[in-house]
Nucleic acid binder design. Structure first.
Lengths: 244, 244
DNA sequence: TTGCCTTTCTGGTATATACCAGATATGTTT
DNA sequence: AAACATATCTGGTATATACCAGAAAGGCAA
C-alpha cells in the first residue's frame, strides 16, 4: 500500500477541504471559531502536516477561513455588503446603519504629491498633501486599511481634526466641501506583509484593493483614498444604468 | 552555518520574490513570458524546490503571475479595465473598442429556477430558464467564465440563437428587449477546480466573482449572469453619485 | 506529411523532519 | 492581586526526497 490512492480518487488534501467545508457550512464551526490546527488535522486525517496545511490554505483562498499570525486559523464571518454606487463614505453609511465600525488612526503626515496622485487630483507634482492611514475594525476584527490623500491648501489644519470619523462628514462640517462623486477602481491582490500585520492576519492573504477619487459639485477632485480589504470579508455592489 | 539567516534577514523565499518581481517590473520578463521553473529557481538560488514554489505562489497571489497546469508559470499581462457602471455588456463594449474578445459556448441547457435565482429574477421557483456557460478569451488567453440564466418564457428558442455574441445585443435584436440597469455584486474567491480547467489555469487561483442582474426599462429583471474572472486580469471601475 | 513512441520538461501530491518565533496558558513567586 | 518565568500551543520557514501525470519536443517509421 504505502501510497496509491486507488483509481481517480481525489487528492487527500481535497478530502480534508471538503470535510472542513462541511463543518463550516452546517454550523459545526461558526463564524470566528478556531479551525483545528495543522498538527491536529494531520493526526486526525493521518497525513503529514504539510498536506494539512495545503487544505487550510485552500480554505483561505476560498474566503472561508483566515489565518492570524501564529495564533491559528478561524472561520470567516458573513461578508460585509458595501454599495459603492450609492455610498461614498463607508464610515458614514455604517454609522447610520447602526453598525459598530471602529476607526483607528495609524499614521498621519504631510507629503508632496507624487506624479500618480498629482494626476488623480489634478494638481502639480509636489503639491503639499495631507495623508493619513486608518484601520477600520468591527467587533474587534480588522476589515480594511485606508490611506487618504487630500490637498493641504484646500483643507488647512486638517490633521488637527478628529480623524476617527467619516472624512466626507468632516470635510462637510469643517470646510463646507461636499462630496458629490466617487470614482472607484477595484482589483484583487494579496495583502503585503506590513498591511497584514496591521490587519492582524498572515501575509499574502488574498485581498481587494479599492481606490476612490472623491470630487465636489464642480467635478473637482479633492481626495484620493486607497483601501486594502481582507478579501473574504467584502461584497461590493454597484448599479449600472444605461443612458438611452 | 547550515541554516541561520543572520539577524532579521528576510526569509529566503521572499528574496526570491523580490528578485522575480524586479525582473517583471523592468521588463526582463514581459507579459506572458515563462517564469523560471520551480527546479530552475531552486538550483539558481540554492534552495529546495518547495521554497522556490512558495515564492512563485506568492507571485500568483499578488497577481503578477499565473500558473497553467503542468505547463509552467507566466507573467500576468496588464489588467483589463472594465467600467461596470457604464457598461452592461462587456462583449458589446469590447467589440466597439476594437478589442479582440472571443466567446466560446461551453454548454447550454434548459433548467428549472432554484430558489436563489427565482428570487433574483422575481419568478416562481421551478420557472423554466435557459442557461448557457461561455468562456471569454482574448489573444488565446482565458479571461473569465460566464453563466447566464434567462427566463425561457420571455425568450423562446433562445438557445437556437447564436450565443457567440453579446447577449444584450442579441436580446435587443431578436426579442426587442432593452437592457436598462445592471445590478452587480463583486467578491473575491478562488476559482474551483472545474472552472480552473476551463480557464486553463491551476486550481485555487485567486479570482473575482461578479454577479449581474439585468433589468429592462420597466425595472423587470430578465437575466442573471455570474462571471468568475481570473483575479489578476481585471480592474473594475464604477462611479458613485450622491443624490444630494 | 502523418502518426506514433519515447524522452524530458513542467507542476501536483505527499511524507518526514527540523528548528524558529510569536501567542497563550499555567504555575509560581512576590 | 500582580508580576514573572516557563511550558506548550500556534503557524512560519526550510530541507530532502519520492513518485505521479500532463504537456511538449524530438526522433523515427509508415
Amino acid at each position: 500500500m504505502s501510497s496509491s490512492q486507488g483509481l481517480a480518487a481525489s487528492p487527500r488534501y481535497r478530502q480534508i477541504i471538503d470535510h472542513l467545508r462541511g463543518d463550516i457550512a452546517d454550523g459545526t464551526l461558526p463564524a470566528h471559531a478556531a479551525l483545528p490546527s495543522e498538527r491536529v488535522i494531520a493526526e486526525a486525517h493521518n497525513v503529514s502536516r504539510m498536506t494539512a496545511r495545503r487544505a487550510l490554505e485552500a480554505l483561505e483562498a476560498e474566503g472561508l477561513a483566515y489565518a492570524e499570525n501564529r495564533r491559528g486559523r478561524f472561520v470567516s464571518p458573513p461578508r460585509l455588503k458595501y454599495d459603492i454606487s450609492r455610498t461614498i463614505s463607508l464610515a458614514a453609511h455604517a454609522q447610520s446603519e447602526g453598525m459598530r465600525l471602529n476607526i483607528e488612526v495609524l499614521d498621519s503626515r504631510e507629503v508632496a504629491a507624487d506624479a500618480r496622485i498629482a494626476a488623480l487630483l489634478q494638481v502639480q507634482k509636489g503639491e503639499p498633501l495631507f495623508e493619513y492611514t486608518r484601520l477600520f475594525t468591527s467587533d474587534g476584527h480588522a476589515i480594511f486599511i485606508e490611506t487618504e490623500s487630500i490637498i493641504a491648501r484646500r483643507f488647512p489644519k486638517m490633521l488637527e481634526q478628529d480623524l476617527q470619523q467619516s472624512t466626507t462628514k468632516l470635510l462637510e462640517q469643517a470646510y463646507n466641501t461636499h462630496a458629490r462623486t466617487g470614482d472607484i477602481t477595484i482589483r484583487m491582490r494579496a495583502v503585503h506583509a506590513d498591511e497584514a500585520e496591521c490587519l492582524g492576519i498572515a501575509a499574502n492573504h488574498p485581498g481587494i484593493e479599492l481606490e476612490q477619487i472623491i470630487s465636489d459639485e464642480s467635478g473637482m477632485p479633492f481626495c484620493v483614498g486607497n483601501q486594502i480589504w481582507r478579501g473574504e470579508l467584502a461584497a461590493f455592489s454597484a448599479r449600472a444604468i444605461l443612458g438611452h
